[in-house]
Each structure stands twice: as C-alpha cells, then as structure tokens.
Design a protein around this nucleic acid. Structure first.
Lengths: 341, 341
DNA sequence: AATTAAAATACAATCGATTGCATTTTAATA
DNA sequence: TATTAAAATGCAATCGATTGTATTTTAATT
C-alpha cells in the first residue's frame, strides 16, 4: 500500500510554480491570481493533498484549539457544559480537546502538561476532587495561555471563573427543606478544599442559623460523593440511630445513593425523610421518588466560559483583567421533598 | 507580562553546547554523557523549558495520539468505551482525542478531516445515525492511518471492527419476551443503514419465526431512538389501538420513553406490557420498573479496539489483514419483564 | 608517548507550511 | 511605444525539534 504524502512542494513542482504561491492559494490569499488559484486547487484535489496542521500550527504559533479538562464526561452536568463549549468554540472556528481527570490530581497534571506541550490556545478547567494546589497550571500561566475555570474553580485570585452562587444554592436547598418542616437536616458534603463544596456547606449552615436551628457538626458528612458513599453514609446514619428528617446532598449521585438505601430499608421519602440533591442529573427525574435538586445551567456555563476564554485568547497582547461570572441556579421541586412534615 | 518561550536552542546557547545534544539529553539518549545530561536537565528546569510537541511531532511524523469519534459522550455505553480506550492507550503512552459527532454526518466528516490534518496515528470510530457512506474515511485510508470501528461499524469489508453479535442479542431479547409469554412484540428500531440496527431487527425477526409467531411489519417502528421518539411511538401505538403485549427497543433511551409513557397512561409493566431495552444504561436500574436490557461490554470493547488499533499502528510498514472481534453480550433480567403473562 | 577504539559532541539537513521582502509580469497611462 | 504603478509570483528564512553523519574528546592499550 503506497502512502499518500503530498505536500505543497509536490503541488508546486507539478505546476512548476513556487510553494509559497501554493500556500497562499490554499489559504485563499488575495495575493494569488484567480486563475492560478483555480489551477492549484484543482491540482491539490487531484493529488489528494491534505494540509499538515502540525507544520502550519508550528509556523503560525497558533493551534485554533482549546483544551477542556474536567472530572468526568459521563456526568450529565459536565457533558452539558461540553455541549455549550463546543457550540461556542466551533462557531468561532476553534477545535475542542476534551480530557477527563477522573478526579485524579496526577491525571489532571499530566493532561495540563500535554495540552501545554501541544500548544493549545487556551484551556477551560473544572478541577478534580484531589486538587489542592494549582502549581500544575504554571506551565500555562508562564506561557501566557489563557485559562478559565468553571464550577470547580480555585479560590486564589487572578483567574477567570464561570460559576453559580454555590452559597446561595446551598442556602436555598436547606431553606426549602426547612420550609417543608424539616428540622434535623443532614448534609452530605465533598472535599472542603474545593470552593464549591465549602460554599454549599456554608449556605447550608447559614440557612440553619437564619431559621434558629442548631448547627451540628455530626450532621455534616464529608465524602467523595459517589453513589456508594451515599449508600454507606445513609446506612451508617441509620445504624448510629442518629435522628434526622432530611438530607441535603452536595450532588445528585450521593443523593441517589441515599434514596436507594432508604427505599431498601423501607423508609418513606418524603414522609419520613426528605432529600435534596444538586446538579439535576437526568436520573433525578426517573428515580422513585423523583429528586428535588438544584439546577445548574450547564450549557450556558460552557458557552460563557468559552466566550470568556476566546476573548482572552484574542486579546493576548494586552492581557485582560481576570473576570468572574456568576450564573443563576434554581431549585427544582420534585417528589423527594413533596409534603410538609 | 513576559511570555516564556524557551527552546532547546536557548538552553544550548546558555550552556555553550549544540542543540542536538540538548535534544538528545532531553529524550534521555545514551549518546549524551551523564554529566552533560544533568547540566542540561538542570538548566532546562531552571529556564522553564517546555517541549514543543508540534515541532517534535512534525519532525518525527508521529503524534502518539489516537482520535476517537462517537455519537455522544453522555451515553453511558460510549463513556464506558472511552474509559476502556483511555486505559489501554495511556498504558502504551498514547494520548486520546475524544470527539462527538452528535449523530450528525457533517460533524463526523469534519472531525475526521481535522483528526487527519492533525496527523493522529490512528482512529477509533462509532458512526453517526446519519452516516450512509464512508468516503469521509478516505483521507485516513489514503494516508495509511489505521482505523477501527466499534459497535456502529460499517458493512463493507476491509475495516477493523470490535462488535457484539447484534443479531444474537436481538434474538435473545425477543426470545426472552416470548418465554415470558408475550406474543405481540413491537420492535423499536433505528436507521437500517446502520448494521447494528439491521442486525438487532433481524434477530428479532428470527426469534419470532423460530417460535412460529407471525412477523408483522407494522410492529416495527423505525426512528432515531430518542426518548421523545420512545414516548411518541408508544403514544401512537396506544392511539392506533394496535394490540401488543411487549416492546423490544433497540436502545434503552427509547425504552425509557416507552416506560414513562405507559406509566403515565396507567398501563402496568410488566403485567400488561413487557419491555426490553438495549445497552444497560445506568438509568435502567433506577426507573420504575427497572428495565430488562442487553448488557454490552463497553470497557472491554474500548480496550480491545485500542489494542487492535495500536497493533495496526505499530505494524504500519506491513499492513495487517482487517480483523473483526466479536464480544459477548448478555441479557439482564429485571422487573420490566418480571412475570409470565 | 603513540595508537586506536569508543564515547561524546557538533554540524547540518529535515519535517511542511508560512510570510516578509524581492523580483517579475501585467496592465494602465501618457 | 515608453513609463510606471499595481498585481502576481518567487526567494529564502523561519517555526522548534530530530537525526544521520562527521568530528572531536576521552580513555584504554601497547
């Protein structure tokens, strides 16, 4: 099998012209006569020419590619963010490289370095649960590669962010439970190194205090918020005979775990225990009972993050001031918090 | 803000040696003395050197990257395939570029061309529902870029495939319904241009025939198998007063739609109507009733596809014969086909 | 100390496309 | 037809790393 390796030089030779003219013709430069352009395009087609973007990007020092790093693509929230990113990026002629950290710091670090080495023009990130420092972003910063965080951002200033108000959302979720008559509200939280979990937790606390309910630290359970964590936490609560009438989980997955466990144990939701999740995963509309949760505008988040990133990419000479965009989130009231107690 | 742009030449100049030695030192070549290597590595670190993979890849004519093109990453089946691909690829030092066609032919075509232009070493594909020809893979074939299809493959010979036996799976699903006493089985099918849907359909047909049940073409409904399709199809069946006691859907999503619709209408599952889906999406364990479905070994499929691809990449000089690997699938019996009628 | 093989380093071409500047060709004007 | 500006094309350096070959240095041997 012979392998096709046609370059602009081959085309140039075939037409007995200079390769610079071929290059210009192929990028539709006005500096090439229409007639020549046609000849070149025709010959390129005929010879099966395929532009080598490695060479082009190397020379131009631009890849028209943005990197996306997030915990896992299978989470609906993240895949809807990706949708938003791709929409906004393709519209502007950018390609998107999607990478998942799988919640591992080491992987995240590797990915960032690979993206940097591949000279992406900018990067959009939602950090992993293991990430506690931000040194691995240095390789981007030092090369002036724009960076935008979404959702799982970092707390140090100097970065661009697209977020929701997690404090408010945590507050709303808890307030909702309180209004339904719940008084002993468990909170499933995530790693406190992540701002989002800290803020959701603070919102929870604030709502308790505002309603003159006691805050008890043994009501707060910090895990990685997997489904198995949700199940195990709930089981432990029941075994420990800790009295509670509600759970506010900082994500849907752990909330689903709780529901499965409670269903298993024959405990009625929401009659005995009410539950609120976070993120509005599709599964929350299907589980029995359906899950009250906080909706995050994933697609919009992706779009806004991309717009912000592209703005920074395009103003690279005169770096912009870091920006933080806060989007609206809202509580979706479903069966898991159905009736007042 | 000054931008870091250190090259091997800068390092070479700083140490008053030749850049070729720097290059060799950085890739740990035995041709450089240990002492020199140490000096170079130290200086590289100190100057914040970051290898430019564009240049490296251009020169080496290898990117150590494989492209993955599939309909959508949010489907659990596909994201588990990705997991398998990444595991197998990273193990061998390859990077993975994930791209979603969103079931659109045009996007698929663009993606393939971009991957080709970016000189990926190989590509793994599951085609979109709109794909009816394979000319857009020519740009890979002509350059000798290895290609492996999984799940949604193409019927023309000369390609590598990793599949399940869709005919058998379709047969099993239908046979299962028949054994549960169902006699009037609707089949939700997808575009017949895709082998998988054709084969699942043929399996369905074969099971009917084997059991002396009549095949009726008005029992077969061909759509894109979205959830809304599932709902609309089911509603139409009910409106048309077509008698049926089971549905075999060629994917879970449409089956979920059917369940939602039937639940809505107060029709009991599985008492009145039994349902079998396809792919074992996580949601199928959560819906009420839980959904009987065909499990596809996603992770393994990804691994095997990657192994096959890498084998082809590594034997590029002496092209291998196209290979088709068939993996086992199995029916998972859940509530939606619970009792015999 | 001379010889020689081996080890270390340097030189220079190369990957394929882009682009500023120089040169040639074309067409318009006097 | 000569002049000149504009249009088209050509030349050659460049992006940053790699690599085959040549040269120099080192160390081992006699």
């Amino acid at each position: 099998m012979e392998v096709n390796k046609v370059t602009i030089h081959d085309i140039a030779r075939a037409l007995d012209i200079n390769s610079s003219t071929v290059s210009r013709a192929l990028s539709d430069s006005p500096r090439v006569a229409k007639k020549t352009k046609d000849r070149i395009l025709k010959k390129a087609q005929e010879m099966g020419y395929q532009r080598n973007l490695l060479a082009s990007n190397l020379r131009k020092n631009i890849t028209n590619t943005i990197g996306v790093v997030l915990p896992r693509i299978s989470r609906h929230f993240f895949s809807s963010v990706i949708q938003g990113i791709e929409e906004a990026a393709y519209q502007e002629g950018y390609n998107v490289m999607i990478c998942q950290s799988l919640e591992q710091y080491e992987r995240e670090k590797n990915i960032i370095e690979t993206l940097a080495a591949n000279r992406v023009d900018g990067v959009i990130v939602s950090i992993s649960m293991e990430t506690v420092d931000y040194n691995h972003f240095e390789c981007l910063k030092s090369r002036g590669v724009p960076l935008v965080f979404f959702d799982r951002h970092c707390d140090i200033p100097g970065y661009n962010n697209v977020l929701i108000d997690d404090f408010q959302a945590g507050f709303d979720a808890t307030q909702h439970l309180i209004e339904k008559g719940c008084k002993k509200i468990i909170h499933f939280s995530g790693p406190q190194e992540l701002e989002i979990y800290k803020n959701r937790f603070e919102g929870y606390k604030a709502a308790l205090i505002k309603n003159d309910l006691p805050f008890r630290s043994d009501y707060v359970i910090k895990t990685r918020l997997n489904e198995v964590d949700g199940i195990a936490n709930t089981k432990k609560l029941l075994n420990d005979k800790l009295e509670f009438d509600a759970i506010f989980s900082a994500n849907d997955v752990a909330a689903i775990g709780a529901i499965k466990c409670l269903n298993e144990e024959g405990i009625r939701i929401p009659d005995d225990i009410s539950i609120v999740g976070f993120s509005n995963e599709p599964i929350s509309t299907v589980i029995n009972p359906t899950l009250t949760t906080i909706n995050q505008p994933g697609v919009e988040m992706g779009q806004r993050a991309t717009e912000l990133l592209l703005k920074n990419i395009q103003n690279k000479k005169a770096p912009l001031k870091p920006e933080t965009i806060i989007l609206d989130s809202s509580l979706i009231d479903r069966e898991s918090t159905g009736k007042s107690h």
